[in-house]
């Protein structure tokens, strides 16, 4: 390692150099990359128990098949991410099976229960849109070759999830009745989760190794805006209320609440009239949502007993 200094590597990757192995990296590059892929893998992995919670009660065999196909993709993507980490010398076994549940780096949204079919398809429509926004930026810009290659499959499949979500949101909204109401209720709590998904606003971040090393191309605020510009018009076209509106001339989206704001975990509602600081958001994230432990443990259910069986 240390073929280059950080400054040299930063300059090289900005000029188009593609990192292929650890020998090309600096320690800071490796750290930033490992952190990024861990977040990616944990997010994909924890989407699986969240999605299964509702998929197992899908309204029909057909819908159960498509919902389960999405879970299968997510597990495949998690597998790809952890495999990349393994090739960077990370002990992924410890990461997956020994890490305390509250150390998983998935977004707060995947610490929440997904209660019914309307919530599931809204999650596909909103959260997978967030995933695509983040990952397609990484795919376009990343200086790490193995990740760029892996993301071809991931991007293709996430697009299918998104289409599934949007098509079903539309279907339920057009049918009206209980299904439509459930989608509105889902969007009520999921939309602000999605806004938070992209993390701290740019003016709070002074230094960004991921951008310097070209592990991604867009800033948090740019990514958040990209998501808002897709999601808000979608909701507007479906007659769904969200606390934001888009300007039909410029296409720009404006939030109609003080972001970030308080989340009432008991009633699962956002308190728009109670803005909070980013330190308070971090505190809430660190305290984790209600399903965090159960979701992590569900992935580990038989691992210990089979490990012992095979070691005996």
């Amino acid at each position: 390692m240390a073929r280059f200094t950080d400054e040299e590597l930063m300059r090289k990757v900005q000029e188009g150099f593609i990192v292929e192995s650890e020998a090309d990296m600096t320690e800071s590059y490796r750290k930033a990359l490992i952190n990024q892929i861990t977040v990616q893998g944990d997010t994909e992995l924890m989407s699986a128990p969240a999605y299964w919670m509702a998929s197992k009660d899908a309204p029909s065999t057909n819908t159960m098949v498509s919902a389960t196909a999405i879970i299968q993709d997510e597990l495949g993507h998690a597998n790809i991410a952890y495999r990349l980490l393994q090739d960077l010398g990370v002990d992924t076994d410890a990461l997956l099976y020994d890490r305390p549940p509250n150390k998983f780096k998935n977004p707060f949204g995947f610490d929440q229960p997904i209660a019914n079919w309307a919530e599931l398809v809204s999650a596909h429509g909103l959260y997978d849109r967030a995933g695509i926004t983040l990952l397609s930026d990484v795919h376009r810009h990343t200086s790490y070759g193995p990740l760029k290659r892996a993301l071809v499959k991931v991007g293709m499949e996430e697009n299918f999830h998104l289409r599934h979500g949007e098509a079903w949101m539309k279907k339920l909204c057009e049918a009206g009745g209980e299904g439509r109401d459930l989608v509105q209720r889902a969007v009520d709590w999921m939309f602000p989760m999605g806004v938070e998904w992209f993390g701290m606003p740019d003016d709070r971040k002074h230094h960004n190794a991921q951008l310097d090393f070209k592990l991604k191309g867009m800033t948090n605020d740019q990514l958040r805006n990209t998501w808002l510009k897709a999601v808000v018009p979608l909701c507007e076209s479906l007659g769904l209320e969200v606390p934001a509106h888009s300007d039909p001339d410029t296409g720009e989206v404006e939030l109609e609440y003080g972001f970030p704001c308080e989340w009432d975990a008991d009633d699962r509602v956002w308190l728009y009239d109670q803005p909070i600081t980013w330190d308070q958001v971090w505190e809430r994230w660190r305290a984790r949502g209600p399903m965090n432990e159960e979701f992590v443990n569900s992935v580990r259910r038989s691992r210990g007993s089979i490990e012992r069986m095979l070691a005996a």
Binding site: A78, R83, T92, L96, Y97, R303, E307, L310, A311
Partner: peptide
């Protein structure tokens, strides 16, 4: 994922 004993 990973190295359940005996995996490669």
């Amino acid at each position: 994922m990973g190295h359940l004993s005996g995996e490669r």
